[in-house]
Design a protein around this nucleic acid. Sequence first.
DNA 1: TAGTGGTCTAGACCACGAC
DNA 2: TCGTGGTCTAGACCACTAG
Lengths: 265, 265
Amino acid sequence: MRLTSHKALRRGRDPRSDKPVFRQIADHLREAIQNGTLAPGDKLPSEAEFVAHYEVARMTVRSALQQLQTEGLVLSEHGRGVFVRPRPQIRRLASDRFARRHRQEGKAAFLAESASAGAEPTVDLIHVREEVADADIARRLGLATGEPVLVRSRRYALNGSPVETATSYIPARIARGTRISEDNPGPGGVYARLEDLGHVLGHFEEEVTARMPAPDEIEILQLRTGIPVFCLIRTAFDVTGNPVEVCDTILSSDVYVLTYDLPAR
Amino acid sequence: MRLTSHKALRRGRDPRSDKPVFRQIADHLREAIQNGTLAPGDKLPSEAEFVAHYEVARMTVRSALQQLQTEGLVLSEHGRGVFVRPRPQIRRLASDRFARRHRQEGKAAFLAESASAGAEPTVDLIHVREEVADADIARRLGLATGEPVLVRSRRYALNGSPVETATSYIPARIARGTRISEDNPGPGGVYARLEDLGHVLGHFEEEVTARMPAPDEIEILQLRTGIPVFCLIRTAFDVTGNPVEVCDTILSSDVYVLTYDLPAR
DNA sequence: TAGTGGTCTAGACCACGAC
DNA sequence: TCGTGGTCTAGACCACTAG
């Protein structure tokens, strides 16, 4: 980026504006990013260059850059510089992604979709254990208080970048002693095993919320500042209407577009 | 909140931690908020009190508070103090919210849901005009380039607080000269009028993304720092599979839970 | 080693809110 | 008026990256 002259900004506030100086600088840069003057991946001028150009203190420049960072427009790399955030490859999650026809191809949902998108999927951080369900999970699964559930946690990555964590809860009375309790539940995943066991799936209910990530989520998903997460809580019901599984998923929101089909009647 | 003594934090960094001081302060406060020591609505100690307690510069305290603000945990009010963010009343959007049986009650979706939730709904900022569709809208509506669309913009509020903006795009060849072009489209809303005109609705496709809001969105939805927005782009199809409307909706994510029903087959 | 961003200090003046 | 947070300055030292 070439710094053009903005005399009005020098020596304190622009008299034509009551906006704080750091906001005016942030607005300049935001506009440059949105109109393409600064393209994704481009390096911004250094803080020192901004200080010289605008004739302000370094903290004022940093406030402007911080503002853009919390908007998710730029990212800073210690020792390298500040860059316009590149747009990651987008993953679309379709509402039919748990349809039986997909399970019958023998692949779990994540692996099947990734393969078709041409990215290299990996799964790690698998923990499988039994616990007493917390109040919310127990309510969703219709469990008695104190009833045990099987908890399956895993993290999914594409081309080495984490994109999603998921934690499944299955009543222990269903899962105990079956392949669902093993690290690898086999072809088609947990849902295929549930159907093998006679719990034919009828439908799913999915709740979607969004919020800023907690520090532990930033770490596990390697998130950048300014990127919210989607929280999905999905309940699987069998054909008789009984809940058989709850899955709590955290998605990095810059990677995902969720698509749903809604009925008109 | 009563400030307990944290000698380890005084006089610079805790030698047992390589975390920056402002992060340690933020972590303390985050924990107090999450374990309930600081309840929603509570006032935090003033910056001056933190400065005296931790024996750090004011900017260090402000960095910690800024951190919590971008996480959406606290909000600051100029001249009053910093407060633990109160949780607003939640609205659930169900996937059957555009079902015909709801339209037939004669109410548009937003008003019908709000009434049942006991909140006072208002709609303002209505603009109705004809424009040339941009590339994305034209693609979704299957329009020729340059073909005009009717654009309907409005903002919805509950009990005086804005919660949602929506912009509808309807091909002008369908809407022109009908009640759809008027400010008040009549009972049941635009969808009811489309069906009156013979465009019987078949289904909707909804795309959900989340991101940090742009400054104009912060203003129009009166958002606080640290709250992402949902972006919904919904396309309405008639029973013959032709798109008849696209609706672009921005939701404040701390007010909404989206719920969807997914098929298992 | 030079340049970058990350943290921190110790002040200053201002704008807003409550009393 | 006084206490609050908002902005800004002019430095300092540190940690990371690159050549």
